[in-house]
């Protein structure tokens, strides 16, 4: 409850900040004839209802990943994950975040913990597409933060650093593997 409230207010603040940022930096309309154009807020803000969804759009549409999405926003990684990629994202569910010791998420969402939060989130991202059938027992994958994760494959079940891979969802710029625990950099 507390977390949810925190995230909601954080999101609201972010929206306000983003909006204010955009209006403040919008170039002088008097300059030249130009039609309404995108906000220029980065790739995640591109208006496109035709293309298939990228990782950000897939995650944003998942009710099980609201904490992750909020964290990605707080760490300023939204535009990064809307980039061309290609990415593999291990995406912990809300329940996975809930398993962390009380106060951990709230702590990480504080502005002065942005770098630590980014480090954790980047530990969930690899720059390459690893489809489930390409994952092998004992395989080591290097992650965006510089750390490594180890894949386990036993009886057809895939794990990453011991977290269970629950589902895999393709996105235009990579693939999302849903996992049941937060990966903490070693």
């Amino acid at each position: 409850m507390k977390i949810n409230f925190l995230i909601r207010s954080l999101l609201a603040t972010l929206v306000v900040i983003t909006f204010a940022y955009c209006t403040n930096t919008a170039p002088d309309q008097a300059a030249a004839s130009q039609t309404a154009a995108p906000l220029g807020g980065g790739q995640a803000t591109v208006q496109d209802d035709v293309s298939a969804k990228d990782i950000v759009k897939v995650a944003s549409g998942s009710p099980d990943h609201t904490t992750l999405v909020a964290a990605v926003k707080a760490a300023d990684l939204v535009n990064v994950l809307a980039n061309a990629g290609p990415f593999t994202v291990f995406a912990p569910t809300n329940a996975a975040f809930d398993k962390l010791p009380a106060g951990t998420v709230e702590g990480l969402l504080k502005p002065d913990k942005k770098e630590a939060l980014a480090d954790i989130l980047q530990y969930h991202v690899a720059v390459a597409v690893y489809k489930p059938e390409m994952l092998q027992d004992g395989q080591v994958i290097s992650m965006a933060n510089g750390g490594n994760v180890t894949i386990g494959v036993k009886d057809g079940k895939i794990t990453v650093n011991g977290a269970n891979l629950l589902a895999s969802i393709p996105a235009t710029n990579g693939i999302i593997h849903v996992i049941d625990a937060v990966l903490l950099p070693k």
């Binding site: 002088d28 300059a31 030249a32 004839s33 130009q34 039609t35 154009a37 220029g40």
Partner: peptide, 13 residues
Amino acid sequence: AEKVYVAPGKYDE
């Protein structure tokens, strides 16, 4: 210059 300047990220008319 002002009349032909289309700011970065803006569209032409």
